[in-house]
């Protein structure tokens, strides 16, 4: 009855191959991490690009200040504050302003009876 075993130790070639496989593992991990970092960096670029899209569009517009919008002047003069441009007029307040949180039920109440109040 005899026992057979492998020779201990390794040859130069075996050592190199063993080390190489570890090195490759490290490199693959690094490449994968780099890939991840690149995706991470690129993933939000579109936000800045869309923002820039709006700024560029703004620059191309003939009118760039809200109070210079002729249709805004018109709606105040003809409808919201007849005869002038007066923001937060009564009508503007009714149509364009709101309330929050616990004040909402009262606001709904008022809005539901608004027409009757005006008719009376």
């Amino acid at each position: 009855m005899s026992i057979f075993k492998e020779k201990e130790g390794f040859t130069r070639r075996q050592f190199l191959k063993g080390s190489a496989i570890l090195a490759v593992t490290v490199v693959v991990t690094g490449v994968f991490a780099k890939f991840g970092v690149d995706i991470y960096k690129a993933s939000d670029d579109y936000i800045a690009e869309r923002v820039q899209g709006l700024y560029t569009l703004d620059e191309s517009m003939a009118i760039r200040r809200s109070h210079n919008n002729p249709e805004i002047a018109q709606i105040y003069q003809e409808f919201l504050s007849p005869g002038g441009v007066n923001p937060v007029s009564e009508k503007a307040h009714h149509l364009l302003h709101t309330r929050y949180g616990k004040d909402i039920p009262a606001l709904i109440e008022e809005l539901e009876h608004h027409d009757e109040d005006h008719a009376a």
């Binding site: 709006l54 569009l57 517009m61 210079n68």
Partner: peptide
């Protein structure tokens, strides 16, 4: 009548845009 807009309104879509539009006016 309710379709014309300005550059100030355009930038509402970006953070800081409402602020900038308000400051202009």
């Amino acid at each position: 009548f309710i379709g014309l807009s300005t550059g100030a309104a355009t930038i509402f879509g970006a953070t800081g845009g409402v602020m900038e539009a308000a400051l202009r006016t």
